[in-house]
Simulated scan of single mutants.
Amino acid sequence: MLRTIRLSLVAAAATALVACGGGAKIGGGKEGAAKAAFQAGQPAGKGANTSGQDLLRQMAAGAATGSAEFSADCAKGGSVKLKLDLTSTGSQDGSVKYKADYNNCNQDGINSYDGSMEIEFKIAGTATSLEMSLRLKGKVDISGTISDSIDADVTETFAATATSATAGMVTIKVDGSIKTSSASYTYANETLNITVDGGLPVDNSGKT
Protein backbone atom coordinates (compact mmCIF):
# COMPACT_ATOMS: atom_id res chain seq x y z
CA MET A 1 0.00 0.00 0.00
CA LEU A 2 2.77 2.39 0.99
CA ARG A 3 4.62 1.60 -2.23
CA THR A 4 1.48 2.29 -4.25
CA ILE A 5 1.08 5.69 -2.60
CA ARG A 6 4.72 6.57 -3.30
CA LEU A 7 4.41 5.57 -6.95
CA SER A 8 1.22 7.60 -7.27
CA LEU A 9 2.96 10.66 -5.84
CA VAL A 10 5.87 10.26 -8.25
CA ALA A 11 3.49 9.92 -11.19
CA ALA A 12 1.56 13.00 -10.09
CA ALA A 13 4.76 15.02 -9.76
CA ALA A 14 5.93 13.91 -13.21
CA THR A 15 2.57 14.84 -14.73
CA ALA A 16 2.71 18.28 -13.11
CA LEU A 17 6.23 18.81 -14.39
CA VAL A 18 5.20 17.98 -17.95
CA ALA A 19 2.16 20.24 -17.68
CA CYS A 20 4.36 23.13 -16.59
CA GLY A 21 6.89 22.52 -19.34
CA GLY A 22 9.67 21.74 -16.85
CA GLY A 23 10.30 25.39 -16.03
CA ALA A 24 9.44 28.95 -17.01
CA LYS A 25 10.40 30.73 -20.21
CA ILE A 26 12.63 33.78 -20.46
CA GLY A 27 10.62 36.90 -19.67
CA GLY A 28 11.36 40.58 -20.02
CA GLY A 29 10.97 40.81 -23.79
CA LYS A 30 13.96 42.19 -25.66
CA GLU A 31 15.83 43.05 -22.45
CA GLY A 32 15.42 39.52 -21.06
CA ALA A 33 16.71 37.89 -24.25
CA ALA A 34 19.62 40.35 -24.42
CA LYS A 35 20.53 39.58 -20.81
CA ALA A 36 20.57 35.84 -21.57
CA ALA A 37 22.91 36.49 -24.50
CA PHE A 38 25.08 38.78 -22.37
CA GLN A 39 25.53 35.99 -19.81
CA ALA A 40 26.37 33.52 -22.57
CA GLY A 41 29.00 35.93 -23.84
CA GLN A 42 30.97 35.90 -20.58
CA PRO A 43 32.96 32.64 -20.97
CA ALA A 44 35.54 33.73 -18.46
CA GLY A 45 32.88 33.65 -15.75
CA LYS A 46 31.16 36.82 -14.66
CA GLY A 47 32.21 37.63 -11.12
CA ALA A 48 35.18 35.29 -11.23
CA ASN A 49 38.81 36.38 -10.97
CA THR A 50 39.34 36.28 -14.71
CA SER A 51 37.66 39.00 -16.76
CA GLY A 52 36.98 38.84 -20.46
CA GLN A 53 39.95 41.12 -21.11
CA ASP A 54 42.30 38.80 -19.23
CA LEU A 55 40.97 35.84 -21.15
CA LEU A 56 41.60 37.59 -24.46
CA ARG A 57 45.23 38.16 -23.45
CA GLN A 58 45.58 34.49 -22.44
CA MET A 59 44.17 33.34 -25.76
CA ALA A 60 46.44 35.64 -27.74
CA ALA A 61 49.45 34.40 -25.78
CA GLY A 62 48.35 30.81 -26.31
CA ALA A 63 48.06 31.35 -30.05
CA ALA A 64 51.65 32.56 -30.12
CA THR A 65 52.78 29.30 -28.51
CA GLY A 66 50.48 27.06 -30.55
CA SER A 67 48.02 26.39 -27.71
CA ALA A 68 44.58 27.07 -29.17
CA GLU A 69 42.24 25.47 -26.60
CA PHE A 70 41.31 26.70 -23.15
CA SER A 71 38.87 25.76 -20.42
CA ALA A 72 37.33 28.50 -18.31
CA ASP A 73 35.37 27.99 -15.10
CA CYS A 74 32.01 29.73 -14.92
CA ALA A 75 31.22 31.94 -11.93
CA LYS A 76 28.87 29.54 -10.13
CA GLY A 77 29.85 26.16 -11.50
CA GLY A 78 30.39 24.34 -14.77
CA SER A 79 32.79 25.39 -17.48
CA VAL A 80 33.23 26.58 -21.04
CA LYS A 81 35.70 25.01 -23.44
CA LEU A 82 37.13 27.60 -25.81
CA LYS A 83 38.77 26.79 -29.13
CA LEU A 84 40.55 29.70 -30.76
CA ASP A 85 40.25 30.30 -34.49
CA LEU A 86 43.93 30.79 -35.27
CA THR A 87 43.12 32.38 -38.63
CA SER A 88 41.58 35.33 -36.77
CA THR A 89 44.57 36.25 -34.60
CA GLY A 90 46.11 38.43 -37.27
CA SER A 91 42.93 40.39 -37.95
CA GLN A 92 43.58 44.06 -38.63
CA ASP A 93 40.60 45.18 -36.54
CA GLY A 94 41.95 43.42 -33.44
CA SER A 95 39.18 40.82 -33.30
CA VAL A 96 39.58 37.24 -32.14
CA LYS A 97 37.17 34.42 -32.95
CA TYR A 98 36.60 31.25 -31.00
CA LYS A 99 34.11 28.46 -30.48
CA ALA A 100 32.62 28.17 -27.01
CA ASP A 101 31.21 24.83 -25.81
CA TYR A 102 29.14 25.26 -22.64
CA ASN A 103 29.04 22.43 -20.10
CA ASN A 104 26.48 23.16 -17.39
CA CYS A 105 27.91 26.69 -17.24
CA ASN A 106 26.27 28.62 -14.39
CA GLN A 107 26.88 32.36 -14.27
CA ASP A 108 24.22 33.55 -11.83
CA GLY A 109 23.84 30.65 -9.37
CA ILE A 110 20.36 29.99 -10.77
CA ASN A 111 20.49 28.92 -14.41
CA SER A 112 22.92 26.78 -16.41
CA TYR A 113 23.89 26.89 -20.10
CA ASP A 114 24.63 23.97 -22.42
CA GLY A 115 25.38 24.16 -26.12
CA SER A 116 27.78 25.87 -28.51
CA MET A 117 28.36 29.34 -29.88
CA GLU A 118 30.82 30.99 -32.21
CA ILE A 119 31.99 34.22 -30.63
CA GLU A 120 33.93 37.09 -32.16
CA PHE A 121 35.63 39.12 -29.47
CA LYS A 122 36.92 42.65 -30.14
CA ILE A 123 38.25 45.43 -27.90
CA ALA A 124 38.37 49.02 -29.16
CA GLY A 125 39.92 51.84 -27.17
CA THR A 126 39.31 55.57 -27.25
CA ALA A 127 41.00 58.42 -25.39
CA THR A 128 38.62 58.03 -22.47
CA SER A 129 37.23 54.50 -22.50
CA LEU A 130 37.63 50.89 -23.58
CA GLU A 131 34.75 49.18 -25.37
CA MET A 132 34.21 45.50 -25.95
CA SER A 133 32.20 44.00 -28.78
CA LEU A 134 30.93 40.41 -28.83
CA ARG A 135 29.27 38.80 -31.81
CA LEU A 136 27.48 35.62 -30.76
CA LYS A 137 26.19 33.07 -33.23
CA GLY A 138 24.74 29.75 -32.13
CA LYS A 139 22.28 28.11 -29.78
CA VAL A 140 22.42 27.29 -26.08
CA ASP A 141 19.86 25.60 -23.84
CA ILE A 142 19.11 27.09 -20.43
CA SER A 143 17.97 25.09 -17.41
CA GLY A 144 17.16 26.03 -13.82
CA THR A 145 14.32 28.36 -12.93
CA ILE A 146 14.31 28.89 -16.70
CA SER A 147 13.71 26.07 -19.18
CA ASP A 148 14.33 27.73 -22.51
CA SER A 149 16.92 28.35 -25.22
CA ILE A 150 18.43 31.24 -27.13
CA ASP A 151 19.38 31.02 -30.79
CA ALA A 152 21.42 34.14 -31.45
CA ASP A 153 23.08 35.98 -34.29
CA VAL A 154 23.74 39.21 -32.48
CA THR A 155 26.45 41.73 -31.64
CA GLU A 156 26.55 43.27 -28.17
CA THR A 157 28.81 46.24 -27.42
CA PHE A 158 29.51 47.53 -23.91
CA ALA A 159 32.17 49.03 -21.66
CA ALA A 160 35.00 46.57 -21.08
CA THR A 161 34.51 46.87 -17.31
CA ALA A 162 31.09 45.21 -17.70
CA THR A 163 32.77 41.83 -18.17
CA SER A 164 33.56 41.65 -14.46
CA ALA A 165 30.48 43.50 -13.13
CA THR A 166 28.58 41.52 -10.49
CA ALA A 167 25.92 44.04 -9.44
CA GLY A 168 24.01 47.05 -10.68
CA MET A 169 23.22 47.80 -14.29
CA VAL A 170 25.22 47.80 -17.50
CA THR A 171 24.40 49.56 -20.74
CA ILE A 172 24.74 47.52 -23.91
CA LYS A 173 24.15 48.24 -27.59
CA VAL A 174 22.50 45.33 -29.37
CA ASP A 175 22.36 44.64 -33.11
CA GLY A 176 21.03 41.46 -34.72
CA SER A 177 18.52 38.83 -33.69
CA ILE A 178 17.79 36.52 -30.76
CA LYS A 179 15.21 33.73 -30.78
CA THR A 180 13.89 31.98 -27.69
CA SER A 181 11.64 28.91 -27.79
CA SER A 182 8.57 31.15 -27.82
CA ALA A 183 9.58 34.53 -29.27
CA SER A 184 11.86 36.22 -31.79
CA TYR A 185 13.48 39.64 -31.36
CA THR A 186 15.26 41.89 -33.86
CA TYR A 187 17.57 44.66 -32.67
CA ALA A 188 18.81 47.61 -34.74
CA ASN A 189 21.71 49.07 -32.76
CA GLU A 190 19.42 49.46 -29.78
CA THR A 191 20.74 50.66 -26.43
CA LEU A 192 19.43 48.66 -23.48
CA ASN A 193 20.04 48.75 -19.73
CA ILE A 194 20.15 45.34 -18.07
CA THR A 195 20.52 44.32 -14.43
CA VAL A 196 23.66 42.26 -13.94
CA ASP A 197 22.88 40.59 -10.61
CA GLY A 198 20.04 38.14 -10.10
CA GLY A 199 18.73 35.49 -12.45
CA LEU A 200 17.08 35.86 -15.81
CA PRO A 201 13.59 37.41 -15.88
CA VAL A 202 10.87 34.77 -15.73
CA ASP A 203 7.74 34.57 -17.88
CA ASN A 204 5.12 32.52 -16.03
CA SER A 205 2.29 33.36 -18.41
CA GLY A 206 2.30 29.91 -19.98
CA LYS A 207 2.35 27.96 -16.72
CA THR A 208 -0.70 26.50 -15.02
Score class of each variant (00 low, 15 high):
G22M: 09
D175R: 03
T195E: 09
G45W: 00
D114Q: 11
G168H: 06
G66C: 10
S205M: 06
T145Y: 07
A34Y: 01
I172L: 11
L192V: 04
A100H: 00
V196E: 01
I119L: 10
S112T: 13
I194L: 11
V174D: 10
D153V: 08
K137C: 02
A167Y: 11
S133L: 04
N193T: 06
G66E: 12
V154T: 02
R57W: 09
A72C: 12
L55V: 09
N111M: 05
E120M: 05
A159F: 08
A24C: 14
D101K: 14
S67L: 11
E31S: 13
G21N: 05
K137S: 07
T191M: 06
A63F: 04
I142C: 04
V170P: 03
R3Q: 12
T87R: 12
K179H: 06
Q39G: 07
F158C: 04
A14I: 12
T163A: 09
S129T: 15
K46D: 00
A44I: 00
S147W: 07
K46H: 02
V10N: 03
I5C: 09
V18I: 14
G138I: 04
E131N: 13
A75R: 00
V80D: 00
G52D: 14
Q92E: 14
R135S: 06
T155I: 07
K97Y: 09
D175P: 05
Q42F: 02
G41D: 10
S116N: 05
A68N: 15
K139L: 12
T191C: 03
T191F: 02
A40P: 03
T128P: 02
K81T: 14
L134R: 03
L82K: 08
G115S: 08
N103R: 10
A183G: 03
D85L: 13
A11H: 02
R3I: 11
D175E: 10
A36E: 05
V140Y: 06
T50Y: 09
K30E: 15
L9V: 07
A34I: 03
A100Y: 00
G52N: 13
T145W: 03
D93K: 13
A60Q: 14
Y185G: 04
T195F: 01
T161H: 08
R6P: 00
G78I: 10
T163W: 03
